[in-house]
Every structure is written in C-alpha cells, then in structure tokens.
C-alpha cells in the first residue's frame, strides 16, 4: 500500500486540496470570516442571467452537437469498417474533439470575424453583412464555435453505441414483418435513447466547464460563468468581492457533478446491452 503514497499524496495536494479550498472559500469573505454573502451573491440578477447564458450555450451546443454528431456517426457507421471514409472520419473526429481553446477562437475570428474570409467574401458578393454587430462574441457565437468540438466528441462517444446495434436485431424485426420505420421506432430508438441522452449530458458538462475558447474570443465582459470567474480573479469589476469567484466555482462543481452523475447512471443503463 505504501507504494501508492507518492501518487495519492500528489493528487491530494494538487487536486483535492484546491477543490476543498474552493468549497470552504465560498463561505468566507476576504478577511477569512465565515459568511453566506458569496452564496446569496450567486442569486442576484446579473449572476442569474450569466448562469442562464451558460446553460443556454452549453445546452444548445450540446443538443445541436449531439444531433449533428449523431447524423455524422450514422453516416460513418453505415460505411464498411475498413473503408477509407470511416477510418478518416474516426481519426479526424478524435483530433477535432481536442481542438478547443485559444487556437479555435482565432480560427473562427479568421473565418467569420469582422475581417474574416467568409465575411469579406459575402460583403464582396452581394454586400451581405455577416459580421452584424459582433454576434461572434456573444452567446450565439460561442454556440457556433463550441460546435466545432462538440460534434466530433459526439461522434467519438456515439459510434460505439451505434456499433452495438447488432444487424441480427434488424433482421429479426424485418423477418417478423416490421417496416424500416417500425424497426427504428420500436427497436433502434429505444435502445439508443439512454446513450443519446447520456452523450447530451457529457457534451453539456464539456461546454459548461470550457474556459479557454470563450476567454480568447470574448476578451472583455463576462457573458458566461467561466468569464465571470475570470473577472473575479483578475479585474476590479468585483473589487472587494474576490471570494465571489469561489462561490461561482462551487456552483460550477455542483452543476457538473449533477450532470456527470446523471451521465454515469445512463451509461450503466447502456452498458446492459452494449457488449
């Protein structure tokens, strides 16, 4: 057991201690006196609005990402396992799923920002104003950019579920006289539903906790919770209330923990037939 000590101690110091620190810090003011002010601060109208924005960005990008990712996954799985298309898409999606962050923000600025390639092209061909008043830097823009890693992540997690649908089940249904639509409605969709819902939750948590992409894209203002934490840590917006950042971080842990627990439960349901 002693051989485990370095590893466990390391994780404890650099992971568990900071988390506990957040949980305790959320209930302290800047002088270290216990207070509930930070927690009640989470419920003022600005903070609730920011939370709502975060939920919208994560929720919409998760649902859109899941639906589009499922379509792509279905297209890929219908190709033979050895086909070039399937191998290429699987390799690329596992790469793109990791492409969040600063670089992604700049890629989208280069594409649909005020001087972006597509923006300039549309302005030159018919004078269409794609840039508008900067939607790229708002909730809608974040959803678009997040889809860039949400769709591939969905493909990565959903292809195994689709592969778990055995051709025999389809053949059995058809031989019992089911139509293609009946097979989908009575067999495939009920079987895939837990996996799909679980994936939506995973994508939600993925977007809810994401910081770098949003931080690079939105350099000023705090439209979602992670950016509110940045403001709490770095700027004067929340001067004298830096401990509010702890409370927001705690709020984040709670939301992600709830979502991931639900995900784990759904995963267990899927695992029953997915072998």
């Amino acid at each position: 057991m002693l051989g485990l000590l370095p590893f466990v101690a390391y994780v404890f110091v650099f992971m568990v201690v900071p988390t506990i620190n957040v949980a305790i810090g959320a209930f302290k003011d800047n002088d270290g006196v216990y207070t509930l002010d930070n927690i009640t601060g989470l419920f003022d109208s600005t903070m609730l609005h920011t939370l709502w924005n975060s939920v919208v960005v994560s929720g919409v990008s998760a649902i859109l990402g899941a639906v589009l990712g499922m379509i792509l996954a279905a297209l890929v799985v219908s190709a033979p396992a050895t086909s070039l298309l399937r191998r290429a898409v699987m390799a690329l999606t596992s790469v793109f799923a990791q492409f969040g962050g600063v670089t992604l923000a700049f890629a989208f600025i280069a594409t649909v920002g005020s001087q972006g390639i597509i923006t300039l092209w549309l302005a030159g061909h018919g004078g269409f104003d794609l840039y508008g008043n900067g939607w790229l830097y708002s909730v809608r823009g974040l959803i678009l950019v997040y889809l860039y890693f949400q769709i591939p992540l969905m493909v990565v997690v959903f292809v195994p579920a689709l592969e778990g649908l055995r051709p025999q089940w389809r053949e059995a249904a058809i031989s019992l006289g089911a139509t293609r639509w009946q097979y989908l409605k009575e067999v495939a969709i009920p079987l895939l539903r837990p996996a799909f819902l679980g994936s939506v939750l995973l994508l939600f948590a993925n977007a809810f906790a994401a910081y770098a992409t949003a931080a690079a894209l939105v350099s000023q203002g705090q439209i979602i919770l992670p950016l509110m934490i940045r403001a709490g840590l770095t700027s004067e917006v929340l001067l004298g209330r830096q401990h509010l950042a702890y409370a927001i971080a705690l709020e984040m842990i709670v939301v992600v923990a709830i979502v991931m627990t639900a995900y784990a439960l759904l995963l267990r349901r899927t695992a029953r037939w997915l072998r």
């Binding site: 201690v17 988390t19 957040v22 948590a205 906790a209 984040m252």
Partner: peptide
C-alpha cells in the same frame, strides 16, 4: 469532473 477553472480558483494556497 472537476474543471481546471475550479482548480485554478482554489490553488493559491498550494
């Protein structure tokens, strides 16, 4: 399950 952002907030002491 614990976002990096949360760890950043609590890591000062460490």
């Amino acid at each position: 399950t614990v976002p990096p952002l949360v760890i950043v907030v609590g890591i000062n002491g460490v």
